[in-house]
Computed example of a mutant assay.
Amino acid sequence: MVVKFVILPNGQITEARIVTSQSTRHTILRNAALRALKRANPLPPFPKGLNKPSLPMILPIVYELRER
């Protein structure tokens, strides 16, 4: 699964969405990936000297499902 999002200079995460996934049919996995971004929000602010209006990010997420 690949999650795409944007980080603003203050560390806020915006525009989070799943862009590709073999597991998109598994709602629980999609929701878990997006929840992880929500929990990480906000990230630390940009360091001084990084003069960008935003940073677009592409994050691959790999799940390994095992039986108990």
Score class of each variant (00 low, 15 high):
M1C: 03
M1N: 05
M1K: 02
V2A: 08
V3L: 13
V3D: 04
V3C: 08
K4Y: 03
K4Q: 10
F5V: 06
V6H: 03
I7E: 11
I7H: 01
I7S: 05
L8S: 04
P9R: 14
P9I: 14
N10E: 15
N10A: 12
G11K: 10
G11E: 10
Q12G: 14
I13Y: 07
I13P: 02
I13C: 09
I13W: 04
T14R: 15
E15G: 15
E15A: 14
R17I: 05
I18F: 04
V19R: 03
T20A: 13
T20C: 05
S21M: 04
S23Q: 09
S23L: 12
T24V: 11
T24L: 06
T24H: 04
R25F: 10
R25M: 04
H26T: 09
T27F: 02
T27V: 07
I28K: 09
I28V: 14
I28G: 07
I28W: 09
I28R: 11
I28N: 08
L29K: 01
L29I: 00
R30I: 06
N31V: 12
N31H: 13
A32E: 10
A32N: 08
A33Q: 02
L34I: 09
L34D: 05
L34H: 05
R35M: 11
R35A: 15
R35E: 15
A36N: 08
L37G: 03
L37R: 01
L37W: 01
L37Q: 00
K38A: 15
K38Y: 12
R39K: 12
A40I: 09
P42Y: 11
L43D: 10
P44F: 12
P44W: 12
F46P: 05
F46L: 07
F46S: 13
P47N: 08
P47I: 14
P47S: 13
K48Y: 12
G49A: 06
L50Q: 04
L50P: 03
L50V: 14
N51P: 08
N51G: 15
K52R: 13
K52H: 05
K52D: 09
P53W: 11
S54R: 11
P56M: 14
P56R: 15
M57A: 13
I58C: 03
I58Y: 01
I58F: 01
I58K: 05
L59W: 13
I61A: 00
I61N: 02
E64C: 04
L65Y: 07
R66A: 08
R66D: 08
R66M: 10
E67S: 06
E67I: 11
E67Q: 10
R68F: 06
